[in-house]
Write a protein that binds this DNA or RNA. Structure first.
Lengths: 228, 228
DNA sequence: CATCGAGTGTGACTCAGGTTCCAGAGCATG
DNA sequence: CATGCTCTGGAACCTGAGTCACACTCGATG
């Protein structure tokens, strides 16, 4: 399931996970001793139904957790960024439930640390800062999923697209994703994304080119998301 | 925000929350000493934006966590049943975030214990069984929200209605909710619920009467949910 | 028993968005 | 430079579901 293409050692784990700063030396040693693993961009990490006894601490790159519907269309449930952890694997670690979604890396190379289930339980029970970290990640995910549910149930595709563009825009103000990829994130069809982008483009909010969307008016997009 | 209409003492908390059995005597005493509070059926408990420094342990009745969209329509995000806890208040207890949704009681009288934020933190840090409980509730909620998101994004209203009816059916095989209430749960319009019920009724899956839906063929409803 | 509110039953209309199909542009490859 | 893939642009169509308007029925209440 996890295609590890390379192993380096303790790079950036301590910096990426602030809870380690407040943890005991023993915990720090334990976690930083774990190998940092790498997965290539755009590669599968987990399939629905997979069992994983471990927790992913994402150091670099990002994960996309998504579903694939019966008719084949897919949609992103949430994304795991550096400093976060993959809740599902974590949950499966405690419950040994089957994994309810697919996970793949996004456009950057992923680097992560895999904390085995046993070690996770130990840390969760012994280390207050780790406990807080777990609580924050889990409850933050609940908040995030709730607001996604609300958006999905009450906003038009164009508004959800605006929100998504703002979420994934890079430092240069661009979103480097094809219309098809955007559609897969939103759970809609490519043609629908095209129409929404044309409307936005006509309104001067974005400029499109092959494989990318330049955000010309982020404030306007934010308004579009909130007030339609 | 919480309209407490009555206070009784330690009824059913120990039975409803198995984690207490494995907890220390001190913890058991602490929790069972908390008053069991009551709220009338169909009453508001929290408004969006409310701050609550505490956690609801639901002993009897149930809570409905929902949003209200800009156009006034509402939809249920999730429901909190006996033995569970209201995650949002719990999260707000740690983060002091504003509360992102509305909460109201459902058709039964609610009885619950309010664990103050400070006591929650103490228990979370000191009591392993409580920790597991919190983890289970939170991660279970994440699973639930993910599958709701998937259903909302890939199923027709009729399929989602079938799933909801199966979720809330009582022991006598009936769902005691008006079409308007069903619509509010699903985030759709009453007329749409009516049409879906007529289709189901024509197919012999349910029988409708004023204010209730009798499930004639639960297996058929399950098939409808899964395969359309 | 008259009245009123809440609930159901229904047709007609509108619209966002999904579907189908195709043209053409950009870009990498042998 | 020819081939082929990916991507964008776009028309035409279909459908699920939200909206509007209204009649009717049930049950509670004065």
């Amino acid at each position: 399931m996890v295609t590890v293409i390379e192993q380096t050692s303790l790079v950036g784990v301590a910096e990426g996970f602030p809870f380690l700063a407040g943890a005991s030396q023993a915990t720090r040693d334990l976690v930083t001793a774990l190998p940092v693993r790498q997965v290539a961009p755009r590669s599968p990490v987990l399939h629905r139904g997979d069992g994983v006894d471990g927790v992913f601490l994402v150091v670099g790159g990002s994960l996309r957790v998504f579903y694939i519907a019966a008719d084949g269309h897919e949609a992103t449930l949430y994304r795991v960024r550096p400093g976060q952890t993959c809740i599902l694997a974590l949950t499966a670690a405690f419950r040994s439930d089957p994994y309810p979604a697919w996970v793949e890396t996004e456009d950057e190379q992923l680097s992560f640390v895999l904390v085995p289930g046993a070690m996770f339980r130990e840390l969760y029970n012994a280390e207050p800062t780790f406990r807080s970290f777990v609580f924050e990640v889990l409850s933050g995910r609940v908040f995030e999923l709730m607001s996604r549910l609300e958006d999905l149930g009450s906003l038009r595709v164009e508004q959800r697209l605006a929100a998504f563009l703002l979420e994934v825009v890079d430092s240069s103000g661009e979103v480097v994703l094809s219309q098809a990829r955007l559609a897969a994130h939103l759970g809609t069809a490519r043609e629908v994304v095209f129409r929404a982008l044309r409307t936005m483009s006509d309104a001067g909010l974005v400029a499109t080119s092959r494989g990318r969307v330049k955000l010309l008016d982020p404030a306007g997009l934010r308004r579009l998301h909130q007030y339609g």
